[in-house]
Design a binder for these strands. Structure first.
Lengths: 83, 83
DNA sequence: AACTATACCGGTATTAGTATCCGGGTATAG
DNA sequence: CTATACCCGGATACTAATACCGGTATAGTT
């Protein structure tokens, strides 16, 4: 194994992240937010549903900027099991 | 083209990010910080040198946690186009 | 000189992120 | 009934992220 597959914990973490992002989107449509963040609507949907479990840093940074939320806040909210 | 290659701007952004991370690492060794962040030393080195231009969000989050820096700070510092 | 620790680089292997295309479902307006 | 606008999911294509390996270089120690 050179690059190990994503663990169930990592997938859970991705779902948490997506859930928080969807909540932050609120009333706005996926297409609008995706366009504002410079990404395709399909990609944003996959991130929100957790099907993209480990998205790129700058992708999340652009989303956080559009949604007006903090990256640190996002990271904390996505950390599942501290101990 | 399904997934377009990284643009020169994206590569520059990655170099900025890596430079900031390296500066934050200070005296500590790559292997130590990489181990603390739960990643391989090779990956951390590539991130710091900019050869990994768009690292995963949680990878950077773990690094920022170990280094004691803010993700928002990192994102701002890596945004090149001020105008 | 030999050893150790650190960092850089190139290659290889595997999985994952991202984009485009396709069809389906629901709801609302006309 | 049609048209529009969302959201959802799968399939495909291509590139990138990550890990492991071996080689190289430099500096410090004994």
């Amino acid at each position: 194994m050179v690059r190990p597959p994503l663990t169930p914990e990592e997938r859970l973490r991705g779902e948490q992240l997506g859930s928080t992002l969807r909540q932050a989107r609120g009333e706005r449509s996926i297409v609008e937010v995706a366009a504002a963040a410079g990404m395709s609507a399909e990609t944003l949907r996959k991130i929100e549903t957790g099907r993209i479990a480990t998205p790129a840093f700058f992708t999340i940074a652009a989303l956080a900027d559009v949604l007006g939320i903090s990256l640190d806040h996002l990271a904390v909210r996505s950390t599942p099991a501290p101990t």
